[in-house]
């Protein structure tokens, strides 16, 4: 029996710039089943990142509902949304977005600082997450001492360390060479298959999208 984890209902998003308002998403509706691996594709400027941000709760729709696990996150206050994000969503970005002054270990530990876990519990979790991405031996390295692919794997460890149900990834392989990209995709595939994470990934790369179960195309703010 499949269960719907994310339900997008009639979502539109407008950005106001001066007096001009730009419509970025037009009345989008779709569901995501628990454990799905969804790829969002489409030309530049079509609204992929915007849609991903709405699902991840770092932006809010102009109209419509975003129901995740029965909870309309479009209605949450900024503070409750922050707490919700820290418990339910893991983020992977195109440019890794690690904090340069923190080591791999400290970067992965960041989301756990918001939990009540003790120092030793945090350490166990961080070590586990880094070993899953194959960087157990690089814990004390700073981002600038790692390759792009390794940085992205640290970012993946950071995304899974709190054990969230949903992982969102915005062009996670966009800045990587072929081999590193393949490693990252394999990892995402494993997270989906072995750890039952629901994954939503924005990508331009058809071979990346082929790892996904479902591919959705956006065109000028409309699902096609």
């Amino acid at each position: 029996m499949e269960k719907i984890i994310i339900s997008i209902e009639n979502v539109s998003k407008e950005y106001k710039r001066d007096s001009l308002s730009i419509s970025v998403l037009n009345n989008i509706t779709f569901d995501v089943q628990e454990g799905d691996f969804l790829a969002l594709m489409g030309p530049s400027g079509s609204g992929k990142t915007t849609l991903l941000n709405l699902i991840a709760g770092i932006d809010q729709p102009t109209v419509g509902k975003i129901i995740i696990n029965g909870n309309d996150i479009a209605k949450l206050s900024a503070t409750s949304l922050a707490k919700w994000r820290s418990e339910n969503v893991g983020f992977i970005f195109q440019f890794y977005n690690l904090i340069p002054v923190l080591t791999a270990f400290e970067n992965v530990e960041l989301p756990l600082l918001l939990t009540k876990l003790s120092k030793s519990e945090r350490k166990k979790r961080v070590e586990l997450a880094l070993s899953i991405v194959g960087l157990g031996d690089r814990m004390d390295h700073y981002p600038k001492q790692l390759s792009g692919g390794q940085e992205q794997r640290v970012a993946i460890a950071r995304a899974v360390v709190t054990d969230p149900a949903i992982i969102v990834a915005d062009e996670p392989t966009g800045d990587l060479d072929k081999n590193s990209a393949a490693e990252v995709l394999t990892l995402l595939d494993r997270l989906n298959k072995e750890m039952k994470k629901t994954i939503i990934m924005v990508t331009h790369d058809p071979s990346a999208a082929s790892k996904a179960h479902i591919i959705k195309h956006l065109e000028k703010g409309d699902l096609v």
Partner: peptide, 14 residues
Amino acid sequence: TREYAVLRTLGFTS
């Protein structure tokens, strides 16, 4: 600016 955005994405508050 970008790092603060990352931290807030991870759930850190203002």
